[in-house]
Write a protein that binds this DNA or RNA. Sequence first.
DNA 1: CTATTTCTGTATCGATCGGTACGCAATAGG
DNA 2: CCTATTGCGTACCGATCGATACAGAAATAG
Lengths: 217, 217
Amino acid sequence: MRDVTEVGDEKMAEKTRERGRPRGFDANAALDRAVEVFWRRGYEGASLSDLTEAMGINRPSLYAAYGNKEELFRRAVARYAEADMAYAREALAEPTAYQVIARFLRANADALTRTDRPPGCLSIQGGLSDGSDGGSVAQFLAASRLAGERALAERLVRAVDEGDLPTGTDPVALARYVMVVSEGNAVHAAAGADRAGLHATVDIALRAVPGNPQGAG
Amino acid sequence: MRDVTEVGDEKMAEKTRERGRPRGFDANAALDRAVEVFWRRGYEGASLSDLTEAMGINRPSLYAAYGNKEELFRRAVARYAEADMAYAREALAEPTAYQVIARFLRANADALTRTDRPPGCLSIQGGLSDGSDGGSVAQFLAASRLAGERALAERLVRAVDEGDLPTGTDPVALARYVMVVSEGNAVHAAAGADRAGLHATVDIALRAVPGNPQGAG
DNA sequence: CTATTTCTGTATCGATCGGTACGCAATAGG
DNA sequence: CCTATTGCGTACCGATCGATACAGAAATAG
C-alpha cells in the first residue's frame, strides 16, 4: 500500500521535510500534462507511453506518484474541474437565473474553443462508452457532469424561491437543458466547430430560458 | 486484394451463383451484432474478440467478409444510419419547420432510450477523441453527424423560402442548435437519463424554435 | 470422379497494452 | 563515514491487441 495522497499537499511541503531522494519533477505540472493527453485522446486512447512522454517522467515514477492509470485519470479530472471549469462556479454567482445561464453558456463556448487547449471538454472526451473496464470511467465522468448539473439546479431552485424565475418553472429540467446545450456544444467543438458557431447556438438556446431579453418562456 | 463489396448485394445474390464453399453465416445479421458492440463499447473499446463472439464468427471470417476492424466499423455505421436513423429522414418530410424539428427531437429522444438497444447513439458512442489511430474514426463520425446537420439545414432553407420560418432566420444556425440538443441528449442518455427527462429537455428546447405553439422566436 | 474455388477453424504472429522487479542514485539522520 | 529511505531508469512481465498462415472442409464446373 503506497500513500499517494501527498500530491497537492503543498501546504505542508515546507514543514514536513521528507527523507530519501527528493522527487525530480513537479507533480502538479506533470498532472497538467496528463490532463491534456486524456483530453485529446480519451481515457482508453491515452497509453502509458503517451502519458509518460508528455509528463516527462518514467513509468515507475508515474505509478509511485499516482497509483495507476485510472487513479491518474481521476486526479486529472479533479484538476481539470478545479482549473478549467472555474468559469462554471463563477457563473453561479450571477444575480439572476438568466444571467447565470447566459454567462455559463458563453464562458463554456469560449472554453470549448480555447486555442491553447484541446477542443471540447475533458469530461466528454474522456470517454462515454463502456470500455474494456466495464464503464467505470464513463460512470465516473457521468457522475462528474451530473454534479455540475445539480449545482446549477440548486442555484435555479433558489432563483425560483427569489421570484427570479416564473412560478411553475422546473429548475431541474431547466438545468438539464442548459447542460444538454453545453454538452452538445462540446461534441461540436470536438468535431472542429469554431467559437462563433457555438455562440450562435447559445444565441438560440437562450431564447428558451425564462427571463431572457426577448421575453420568451 | 479481396473483394469485400458483396455484403449488401443481395439483389444479385440469386442471379450470380458463386463457386466455392458458401458462407456459413448471414453477413447482414452479423453486421447488426457488430453495430450493437460498437454502440455499447465504442470503436476502440470494442475488441475483435468482443466482435467475433457477438457476431458468432471466427476472426478470419470477419476479415474475409469486411476487410478489417475499421472497415467493419464504417459498414456498421452505414447500417446504423440506414436502420436506426430512419426517423430523422422521416422527420424532414413534415410540412413545417417547427414540425420537422419537433418530430425529429421527439423521435430522437425515443431512439436514445429504446430498451432493446444500447442507450445513446452510435455516432457519439463510437468515439469522439483522437484514439491511437490519429482520429480517423472520430473524424468519420463527425462527418457523418455533419451530414445530418446539413440535411436539416437544407430543409430549413426551404422553410425560409416558403415563408415557413420568419425572415432573417438563420437556417444553418437553427439546424446546428437542433443537432446540439440532439447530441447533448445523446450524452445524457448514455449516462442513464430516462426517456421522460429527455422529453422534458425537448419541451424547453422547442421554445427557442420559431413557429412553436408558445409563439417565441 | 478431379480440379478449382472459397469459406472455416486452429494456432499463431509481432506489437503494444497496463503494470513491476530490481539495482542504482540521491537525499537525511546518525 | 554509514545506514535508512525514497526516487529514478532499465529492462521486463503476462495479457491482450489487431491481423494472418495454413490446412482442411464444402461447394461448383467439367
